[in-house]
Nucleic acid binder design. Structure first.
Ligand code: SF4
Ligand code: SF4
Lengths: 155, 155
DNA sequence: TAATATAGGACTGACCTGGTCGGACTTCCG
DNA sequence: CGGAAGTCCGACCAGGTCAGTCCTATATTA
């Protein structure tokens, strides 16, 4: 649980890709999709939504593409996630009207709101620029692969 | 997204209820379910899983019921959530073997791991005792209801 | 005009979710 | 001692959501 959707994942990858490309580089959906093995149409839809939310700027036509609408430092991963998956709702009662049947008698609603705030803060502090600074180009694959299993032992 | 399941929600409610009841009070599934308007069987299943994970102790028979297996201070909400919804997997690649198709070419995997760590930390710091200390009995409903809409304006 | 790109909707199949059912066990009462 | 009530427990089913696909329309450039 607490998993963010694949679309949001794709969105973050694309955002980082565009951030690495710099302000002047407009990449097409096809280019990004091929580079990361993402279904073209699906990525396109994701990018479209990011445009609608004002995180990306699109340019149509045969030399078109997408580019960041703001500086990477001005975009947090929370922005991207919320643009794709909608508002972060830890519980069913947050933000939207969908009040669950236990709303009146619930006793954990308020503490969970605080948890949500903290998660949101954690997401908000991480920016696209921070994402882009990591793993400079695409090297250091081996190191990452090795680190995986070790971190799996959490808790 | 990033929503935790209804079952986890129920689990937290039950845990808080049992914590408020004190160490010596063993409540039956029926009692808790009726008090919070939760489907009896569903709550039962949730409690069963908590027993299997060692967070609760069950006692069968006509005077049976459940009680906390540990001190409220020793149980974090992360424990409860992970007991019900499984490990917290922010991305599809964390912990389990289900590596997504983009694993090799992914460029946001490592930063997202850090995000996961922070979320996990936020969840781990909040204990059942902290939950129980909040909203002493069930009063202050009006205040909570009024606070809802204000917080809805997030972002 | 032909080619290429975005924009947007509708559709489908797999999967997970909340919710329900019947069975097994334990304890109590006649 | 035996039935009966009460409880826990595991398997089962329906609905909704999500990832992915397909198709069409529109805009821009060579
Ligand atoms: S049970 Fe409580 S915390 Fe969960 S969704 Fe309902 S009101 Fe919110
Ligand atoms: S795309 Fe990257 S971060 Fe997302 S699940 Fe796959 S490997 Fe993990």
């Amino acid at each position: 649980m607490l998993r963010l959707s694949k679309k949001a994942d794709y969105a973050l990858m694309a955002m980082k890709h565009l951030a690495l490309r710099g302000d002047r580089g407009s990449s097409s959906a096809r280019e990004i999709a091929e580079q990361y093995d993402i279904p073209i149409e699906l990525l396109a839809k994701v990018l479209q939504r990011l445009v609608r939310r004002g995180l990306l700027a699109s340019h149509q036509g045969t030399r078109g593409g997408y580019q960041l609408a703001r500086m990477p430092l001005q975009i947090s991963v929370a922005d991207v996630i919320q643009a794709i998956d909608g508002p972060v709702t830890v519980t069913a009662c947050s933000t939207d009207e969908a009040t669950c049947d236990q709303f009146a008698k619930c006793n954990v609603r308020d503490p969970l709101w605080r948890v949500r705030e903290r998660i949101l803060a954690a997401l908000g502090e991480c920016t696209i620029a921070e994402l882009a600074a990591d793993v400079p180009a695409g090297a250091s694959q081996a190191a990452v692969l090795h680190r995986g299993p070790e971190r799996a032992a959490l808790r």
